[in-house]
Amino acid sequence: MHVVVLMKQTFDTEERIRLVDGKIAEDGVKWIINPYDEYAVEEAIQLKENQGATVTVVSVGNENTTQALRTALAMGADEAVLIEAPDLSDERAIAKAIVAYLKDKSFDVLLAGNFSVDNGAGQVAIRVAHELGLPHIAAVTKLTIEGNQATGVREIDGDVQTVTATLPALFTAQQGLNEPRYPSLPNIMKAKKKPLTTLTLSDLGLSNDDVAAKVERVEVTLPPKRQAGQKITGTPDEQAEQLAEILVKALR
């Protein structure tokens, strides 16, 4: 079985976002594997351990992204591919690059995160499945593979849904799928010797036109600061009266 994981490097979710000249400042920021993609990596490694598989992790990013790929290798992936394309911005273009890489590869399972915690579009993986004409099951919290049949369990409003698909297929990982491991120190040493290939867009036969953005980012702003609260004092009657006044004013 060949499992390919689509993976993005993102900001640490605990990081404070700063804007400099209308852009998110990236200096001194801690980078991590997108948490949902980390579930995907873990799931792939568990498939490898339990059923035997080769695991390839693929990421579109820049030189800094090799750090996240090395982490995935240390967790247990066999091989990593960096598609070096720092200027790609919209999800369609990123999906195009991944499709260009995957189209002549053979694989059984494609795994990715449900969405990335930075931009949160949740599009790339689904677009890849669409372009490759593959079935996909989104946001799985349990995945079982038997032969060429996959069963994914999804949590839907207060209930669970079980969906089956025939491989090759794509699955996106939801929180709860598994508990990602810490790469062990010996595996970090071993990861150094695992193959990490870097490809450019032209290596993949893509021109600038192929990956031109269709979506333009107009502005990035921080959420408005929360207003200070207002304290209501007095006897219960007075408080009720004040509250009613405030509500009425707000509704008008």
Partner: peptide, 14 residues
């Protein structure tokens, strides 16, 4: 070396 940086991140996280 990059593998020591990786170890540092892992242990810090842990």
């Amino acid at each position: 070396p990059s593998e020591l940086e990786e170890m540092r991140r892992t242990i810090r996280d842990f």
